[in-house]
């Protein structure tokens, strides 16, 4: 058994967990609320791209460039995220976080059921659009250790997406507004920032990242199966967010890579059915010894 291989594969795949974690953490940053439906709604975007591919018939030999799938998935993810914002956050009471929490859980169940209805609960083949950009295996160091080309592509795309997000957050007016709202909502409002619009934009940005993550998962795994994607990945994204520290983007990145490597090692040792149990144990270890997460602030009462 080669642990180095497992860890490297896991780290590369962990990049999508990092993307999902960033989405959760961004929304928590501006709203101070958790959007339970975030990952599910974004993966619905991946299902939309898949549906289009099936209708147009792209899935056989893939005529269009692969980025079209990603683009469709990202756009649909953004649109769904906006819808989630409207139905779960825009009109629920601001000070009563239980309302938006339960509404997003309701949305999560709804999206899950919609995907079941759309796919009959069967796994759907996803075109492996990440294949062929690099050779596979890309780098072969020895017989036991090689870097997979599709995972490397996924990692690079995720890094580019993260850099893009950081550019938006730290180099544009929109990012300035987002950071202002995250820091002090009332003060931001007094400076003339439209908080509602900033919140909605943050949701859309997070949704775009999530849609991208969903499409990449589909492309690397080769299939999308509702019972393995919608709710399990929501939970994994939440775990990444908590481990990294709620509201911290570096935390989500480190947490995502860590969870990816960790689960892949346990996949190699204990098999696929028990893998997620160990990820949850990792969360409980963090809750017991470092509840604020890797990069989180220590909770203060306001």
């Amino acid at each position: 058994m080669d642990y180095v291989q497992a860890i490297v594969d896991g780290l590369l795949f962990g990049a999508v967990y990092a993307l999902i974690g960033i989405g959760f953490t961004l929304i928590f940053g501006v709203m101070n609320k958790i959007n339970m439906a975030y990952a599910a709604a974004s993966f619905a975007g991946a299902y939309v791209s898949l549906g289009i591919a099936q209708v147009v018939g792209l899935s056989g030999d893939f005529g269009l460039p692969p980025f079209v799938m990603f683009l469709v998935s990202a756009v649909a993810g953004g649109v769904f995220a906006y819808i989630v914002y409207l139905i779960c956050f825009r009109f629920t009471p601001d000070h009563y976080e239980l309302a938006s929490l339960m509404a997003t859980i309701g949305t999560l169940l709804m999206v899950d059921e919609m995907v079941v209805q759309a796919t009959n609960g069967e796994p759907q083949n996803y075109p492996e659009v990440l294949q062929g950009i690099f050779d596979n295996p890309m780098l072969e160091f020895s017989e036991e250790f090689a870097i997979r080309g599709d995972l490397l592509t996924l990692f690079i795309v995720a890094v580019i997406a993260t850099l893009g997000l950081l550019w938006v957050l730290f180099r544009t007016k929109l990012g300035l507004a987002t950071r202002a709202v995250a820091q002090q909502r009332m003060a931001a409002q007094l400076c003339g920032i439209r908080v509602d619009r900033t919140n909605a934009t943050t949701f859309v940005i997070a949704g775009v990242l999530g849609g991208l993550a969903g499409a990449m998962i589909g492309a690397v795994v080769g299939t999308l199966l509702q019972s393995l994607v919608v709710i399990p990945l929501t939970i994994k994204g939440l775990i990444v967010t908590v481990i990294g520290g709620l509201g911290s983007i570096p935390g989500a990145i480190v947490g995502g890579l860590m969870v990816g490597a960790f689960e892949n090692v346990f996949l190699a040792i204990r098999g696929v059915t028990e893998r997620d149990m160990y990820v949850m144990l990792l969360l409980f270890v963090f809750l017991a010894f470092r509840p604020q997460g890797l990069f989180g602030r220590v909770a203060v009462r306001d």
């Binding site: 928590f28 609320k33 958790i34 976080e97 929490l101 399990p232 939970i235 939440l238 775990i239 967010t241 908590v242 709620l246 059915t273 028990e274 997620d276 149990m277 949850m280 144990l281 969360l283 409980f284 809750l287 017991a288 509840p291 909770a299």
Partner: peptide, 28 residues
């Protein structure tokens, strides 16, 4: 006990993860 070290929304995440943990335990 450990869940009480976190409050509010973190507790929601912790309990969801725990519920799923038990479910996967029975699955195995």
């Amino acid at each position: 006990f450990p869940a009480l070290r976190v409050k509010g929304l973190m507790l929601v995440v912790a309990t969801i993860a725990f519920g799923e943990f038990i479910r996967i335990f029975w699955f195995n």
